[in-house]
């Protein structure tokens, strides 16, 4: 197949998959930018994990919707998660960036995590022995994020996210960092070494899926609206039982005869 035809519609068609492939290449470049981002002491602060394809993205979106339901009384929270789940389904790939060193404190007593207690704020609260945290022993397995952790090193991961987004900018793909996507990804096992993860959905479409969002976006997104049109179009067609061979009311010739 020597020619590569690229067009985003219909979704998941060969011409759309060809486009998605390019976005995955961009995701890899973004991951590389995240890895080479500046970091404290030259120690790697971030790990990257890429997932792509409609089925995989749908899994992440479903997890986000599950997290939305964890706070049934908090509408702002629920709606944000559901809106962003719709954005994930409209993306081409997700780059997860995890704070690899969140349970390995920077040991300078900066106080970002707990103030005057220095690094002991984290060590004392987590299962630490001789200044080493046992990451296999979760403190709050049912929390959204199992803190506390080394805020200095998580902040260092922020640099990696910045580099990834700068790369997206340079490659002309749309990308936006989300807490909701990151939390869902972390729960699903992406970035396995990191207790806190940022999710960066990436898209290479005519319209960025991440901006200019309608209210009730989980209901009124393009996929849903197209789906309602499909359904209602078919029903409307079925109740117009016109015998087009013998009577086509819009055929200009038919009108001439009548006139």
């Amino acid at each position: 197949m020597p020619d590569i035809y690229i067009e985003e519609w219909p979704p998941q068609s060969p011409n759309d998959l060809a486009r998605q492939e390019t976005v995955v290449a961009a995701a890899r470049m973004m991951a590389q930018a995240a890895i080479t981002a500046p970091s404290q002491g030259g120690v790697q602060m971030a790990e990257c994990h890429i997932t792509h394809g409609a089925a995989e993205l749908d899994k992440v979106a479903r997890k986000m919707e599950e997290l939305a339901r964890l706070r049934p009384d908090n509408n702002a929270w629920k709606r944000m998660f559901k809106y962003e789940a719709a954005m994930v389904r409209d993306s081409d790939a997700i780059l997860f960036i995890g704070a690899l060193a969140a349970f390995r404190p920077f040991d300078t007593g900066c106080g970002y995590c707990g103030g005057s207690e220095g690094c002991q704020f984290v060590y004392e609260r987590r299962n630490a022995r001789y200044g080493v945290i046992d990451a296999a022993e979760p403190l709050h397995p049912d929390w959204l994020v199992d803190g506390p952790m080394c805020t200095m090193n998580v902040y260092g991961m922020g640099w990696a996210v910045g580099s990834a987004l700068m790369m997206a900018n340079r490659l002309f793909v749309d990308a936006r960092p989300f807490m909701s996507v990151g939390m869902a990804g972390q729960k699903l096992g992406y970035c396995p070494k990191s207790p806190i993860v940022v999710g960066v959905p990436i898209a290479g479409k005519g319209k960025s899926p991440f901006v200019d969002i309608l209210p009730d976006y989980h209901v009124n997104n393009l996929a849903n609206v197209v789906e309602s049109l499909r359904n209602k179009y078919v029903i409307s067609r079925m109740v117009n039982w016109l015998p087009y061979r013998i009577w086509d009311p819009l055929n200009p010739d038919a009108q001439k005869k009548e006139g």
Binding site: N220, N224, V225, S228, L229, K232, Y233, I235, S236, M238, V239
Partner: peptide, 8 residues
């Protein structure tokens, strides 16, 4: 169309 009831 998105906000329409049964179109039949």
């Amino acid at each position: 169309t998105h906000f329409m009831g049964f179109p039949g």
